[in-house]
Design a binder for these strands. Structure first.
Lengths: 225, 225, 225, 225
DNA sequence: TATGAATGAGGATTCATTCAT
DNA sequence: TATGAATGAATCCTCATTCAT
């Protein structure tokens, strides 16, 4: 049915265009899911934005839910990607660096950020979902440089709480259009984190968070009581 | 069956039964929306649970969304209702009292709490929605007894952030089935709040949160730096 | 259950208020059916406009269709009512008089007229419906004074056709807001009627319409060929 | 089964079957809307008559109203299509020819005709709707061959009135089952048209309709004054 | 006579998903 | 790999009508 042409390049061309279709679908999904909730986005919208046939979505992602999850994973990856710090710097500075990058990244991807964060609440906190995975990576890293036990339940609980607080704070900022200096925001988050750590200590007295807190505070612009 | 009273017993009997139908619908809605998301609950399920005809839902609430919003409002009212404290007690104690009541209430209404809190993220933060209203009431009250300016943007921002953190923490607790002593949880939240307040001070240096922080800490079981 | 009071006037009061409810319903129906089609008007709208309980409509008119038909009958009666002419005048003048009154009446009840006329087409031409009845009355009267056989099928056909033409012409005028002198319009209608009569003669050569035509034309403002 | 042709046979086959589905739906709609009113026909009836799935109607026509309007347009096209006359013939004959074709066509499509005509009243006379467009085309053509000014308001008014009269006359005929010779009917319509033209002259004395009237009458089987 | 709460059949519309091509 | 026509279950919502009071 298909006149045999020079074969090898054909396949790669095909593969390339296949990969491109996938990309287009994923981008379109990202676009829509970043703006509206799962049930409010139709598969047709995604394919039409992607400029491909309706059926292709199901070919590649099996499900609407399938592309949704992949889109979220992708989004999280993009937002979380920017963590690159100087591993030789002091922990308090590295952490501030990460927070700063995180905030800047969010600010630059406002719509996406707002909706990915909001979406997190919808998906449910399965330990398996892509958000949680990258998030825990970051947490594990932070615990490590602060010399804390990343596996302690109380600590995890408070870290997660801090994470949510920081996310919601970001959403509030972005939505309201407040404009604080990024340095102030970082310091505010640090204070929040300190609160979270000390909260963890309240839950589990055996936890020693003092060193971590001290390290965090040591780099605050002005000394505190 | 109904002793004919001077006034209008007939009408009130009917009104009562009408009101009862409304209640049954609202309760049924509360039941389902507490367990599954808006789009996953059908109007038919609600009416069938309520034991009334399908059309009645639309008679009373116009919309599926209509009953949803009323159900949420009702739920919020229930969850938020329990704040009654001794106004003569010291601020730090009053606030702990509120947090304790809040946590206990949530624990007792686990499913409801989880879903109401999760729903908040979906609804969007209009200043007009019933969640925000009661929440700001509480915040205003707390600011007042801590002698803080409830209208300062930075403070509002951090309060909101703290509120979200505390909500999400509760959800995590309830979902995971952790079982910490309620007193520890209260103290953990207080620490988080302290962090939030100090964060606010970072955002707006003119804010004086020291007195409030001191007051909060003064009642901590063991003093800390 | 009802303390017996001076009886006789009670009944008449009741009857009066009953009659009033009927009237209010009918007026409300007229109002709505004059503006929108049968299926687009809900029973609830009618009762709410009438300011009575939903059920009362069915109490008095059994059906939505029931009140519709009565409303149409009423409307037709109102529009058709104004035919009073001087029976001693010459036929051509009497007929002009009727047309003039008809046009004026329609102009004064624009909305009602438009919709009643449009409604006619919807209802279907049962000989039993209230429109047709009054309409045929008028036709019979006109035939009589013009000395024509009102029962001849061809004549009936063309009269009806003329009637529709005249109605639609009126609707066009009212909708478009043309403003021709009423006398010109009457003369235009007369010409149309002449055409219809001569058309009838074409259908049934045995019909003698010449005298009628001559009588009609005799009163035209300017002579014609 | 399909000889592979050089170009794109696959696509055209599918397009053909798609087009066929559309057709089946349209035909089914025509069938039902020709017999019953809009609100009395259900979408399900149409699709079931067409032998396709329920959803396909909405796929192709978006709305029940959508398919309704297209069906009407189609019907009008069919009814109005048959105007082909000998352009060299005398105007009076050409016009009779058109009327004759029109009448015959209507007679052959009785149900359709009745409902299309009745539907016109329901739809409302937007200048943009497909009925009006084809109708005005015909009127413009007729004015041209009769050497009349198609844009004069009075003339338009009376033409429209004549059009309605002729439509309603047809409906009456079809519904009642009268059976007049088609030639007689044509002549009756011509008389009606003459009446309409002279009516126009009454409305607008500057209009000269005499030549047109004379031309029309010149071809009447027996001359009349 | 009057109320209006309650009913529930009925219908339009959506949209994920399949599948022949 | 890609298409897009076709499916049909699922669901929201309307509204005429009934009936207990």
């Amino acid at each position: 049915m298909e006149r045999p042409e020079p074969s090898a390049p054909r396949v790669s061309v095909r593969q390339a265009s296949a990969e491109e279709s996938r990309r287009k679908l994923l981008d379109a999904a990202l676009f829509h899911f970043s703006r509206r909730a799962f049930d409010e986005v139709t598969a047709a919208e995604i394919t039409s934005t992607a400029g491909v046939a309706n059926g292709l979505l199901f070919h590649y992602f099996r499900n609407k839910r399938g592309i949704y999850l992949e889109a979220l994973a992708e989004a999280t990856r993009r937002l979380e990607a920017a963590h690159d710090t100087d591993p030789t710097a002091e922990p308090g500075l590295q952490l501030r660096q990460v927070l700063r990058q995180h905030l800047m990244h969010l600010t630059e991807n406002k719509d996406l950020a707002i909706n990915v964060i909001l979406a997190r609440n919808t998906v449910g906190h399965d330990a398996s979902d892509p958000f949680e995975l990258t998030r825990w990576d970051t947490i594990a890293w932070a615990c490590k440089i602060l010399d804390l036990d990343a596996d302690h339940p109380a600590l995890r609980l408070m870290w997660r709480s801090f994470g949510d607080a920081s996310d919601q704070l970001t959403v509030s900022l972005l939505q309201a259009g407040h404009s604080y200096a990024i340095e102030s925001l970082v310091e505010a988050l640090v204070e929040l984190l300190v609160g979270a750590l000390q909260g963890a200590a309240r839950l589990a007295p055996e936890l020693d968070v003092e060193k971590a807190v001290a390290e965090l505070r040591r780099h605050s612009p002005s000394s505190n009581t």
